[in-house]
Computed example of a mutant assay.
Amino acid sequence: MSEQPSTAHKAFADIAPVLADYTDRVLFGDVWERPGLSPRDRSLVTVASLMSRYQANELQFHLGKALDNGVTREELIELITHLAFYSGWPTASTALGVARRVFAERDATE
């Protein structure tokens, strides 16, 4: 583990330290590191699932993680456009707003 606090620890370790540890060790340590899918593929699946379920809070983090894992902005927009027909226009519209913010934050720090 890194010496820097993880995103989970920054977000909620003060109130739920065990959940933050599970998030780091089990979710991102075990599940995300399984060899059956690449981190890039896991990001695509995760973004699609979060978008379809209207989970905008988690979507913001995972859009950024997808970019870190090699998914391009164009691919993320294509995913959102494709899912508009399966999860609905409102979920796509919400996801586009979240993507716009994530991209803008990236542009501001690059």
Rank of each mutant, 00 (worst) to 15 (best):
L79Y: 04
G64R: 09
D41Q: 15
S49G: 13
M51T: 05
A48W: 00
W32H: 09
A84M: 11
L76H: 04
E75S: 09
L27G: 02
I77P: 00
R40I: 05
Q55D: 12
S49C: 12
V45F: 11
E75F: 03
R40K: 15
R40D: 10
V47N: 00
D41K: 08
S38Y: 01
Q55A: 15
H62D: 07
G29H: 04
S52I: 04
K65N: 14
L76R: 06
V26T: 14
L37R: 09
S52A: 12
A48G: 15
P39Q: 04
T81G: 05
R40V: 00
N57S: 14
E33D: 08
F28P: 00
F28K: 05
H62F: 06
F85V: 08
A84K: 02
H82S: 11
R34I: 04
A84W: 02
E74K: 14
E58H: 12
N69I: 00
A48R: 02
W32K: 10
V45N: 11
K65A: 14
S38H: 08
L83H: 08
V31T: 11
L76V: 09
V31D: 07
I77W: 07
V45G: 08
S43F: 01
E78K: 10
H82M: 11
L27M: 13
A56L: 11
L63F: 05
V45L: 15
N69E: 12
E74M: 10
G29W: 01
